[in-house]
């Protein structure tokens, strides 16, 4: 039996290479929406890359193309030197969605074991790994609970534990904290960084939130509205480990402003929480003014 662990698959070159990817959604023979255009992106091993852009810019679609949940209209995606489909078959991906997508009929522990069962791990190994992962996300005392007995933030931590359980070489996170309140979200951000630093997993992270993207990432990929294109890539040179002080540092505010301006240059509308989304021109002006003060 081959070990699906990414640590066994150490190799040079980028983990993910996206080149010349277009995505057009069709209805029948008619092209309906051009979601992505001319996307080129390399992600190195161990990187934390965020995709940010206005609603409908195709950032989730790009993540789904990388994860082989949908296919590009043109262009290629290579993951660990393989096609995206082969990478999926080799279980190179851990997925975390906006909703936790836990199975109510399974306990927290059994939810984490789900991918391990599918991968054919034996019971003892499944049990010890599930424990280990739940301790990692600090839910060790909730193993026997059912998902609906946990809060939203706890459920999402279970989803992260599940995604990491089989040590996928890349973690794809599609707005994982979008449904959480601001406080929980900040705590989860810290948690994700801690886990990322401990496991060394490569993460591709889709978000609506500029502060979140800057706080977490090694690079922030800024996308423009339909058709989605990469307009700018902002290198985030904040020191690690990142803490609450990071959020108050001068460099942090400069980078938040840089990402915000890149988004604005791409035609995005911002609201006053630094979240990309539909909003009025007045609120954009206010946001920019506040950013400058910070």
């Amino acid at each position: 039996m081959t070990d699906p662990s990414p640590r066994a698959a150490q190799q040079t070159g980028p983990v993910v290479r996206v080149s010349g990817v277009d995505k057009t959604f069709r209805r029948g023979d008619r092209a309906v929406t051009k979601a992505l255009e001319a996307i080129d992106l390399d992600i190195a091993r161990g990187e934390f890359v965020s995709l940010i852009g206005p609603s409908g810019c195709g950032k989730s679609t790009l993540l789904r193309i990388v994860g082989d949940l949908t296919s590009p209209s043109t262009g290629t995606v290579t993951v660990n030197g393989k096609t995206a489909e082969q990478a999926r078959r080799d279980r190179d991906y851990g997925m975390v969605f906006q909703a936790p997508v836990l199975f109510d009929w399974r306990t927290v522990e059994d939810n984490v074991k789900l991918p391990l069962e599918i991968l054919g791990w034996d019971a003892a190994r499944r049990a010890s790994r599930a424990r280990e992962m739940l301790d990692l996300v600090e839910l060790g005392e909730f193993v026997k609970h059912h998902p609906f007995q946990l809060s939203g933030g706890m459920q999402q931590r279970v989803a992260i534990a599940r995604a990491l359980a089989f040590e996928p070489s890349i973690l794809l996170m599609d707005e994982p904290f979008g449904a959480l309140d601001e406080m929980t979200r900040e705590r989860m951000n810290g948690e994700v960084l801690r886990i990322w630093e401990r496991t060394g997993t490569t993460i591709l992270f889709v978000t609506h939130s500029i502060p979140e993207a800057v706080f977490l990432s090694s690079r922030v990929v800024v996308m423009s509205a339909r058709p989605g294109r990469i307009t700018t890539i902002v290198d985030i040179d904040l020191p690690r480990p990142r803490t609450d002080e990071t959020r108050e540092s001068r460099r942090y505010f400069e980078l938040v402003t840089a990402v915000r301006e890149a988004l604005r240059a791409g035609g995005a509308e911002l609201d006053d929480r630094g979240t990309v989304g539909p909003g009025s021109d007045a609120s954009i002006e206010r946001t920019i003014a506040e950013g400058a003060v910070g």
């Binding site: 999926r88 078959r89 789900l114 991918p115």
Partner: peptide, 25 residues
Amino acid sequence: EPAAVELMRSYAASDWTILRKLRVP
């Protein structure tokens, strides 16, 4: 949940496994 089916796909689960571990429960 459609996302649950996608989750199973991301594990490269077969239709049979999806039936057994998701649809039947």
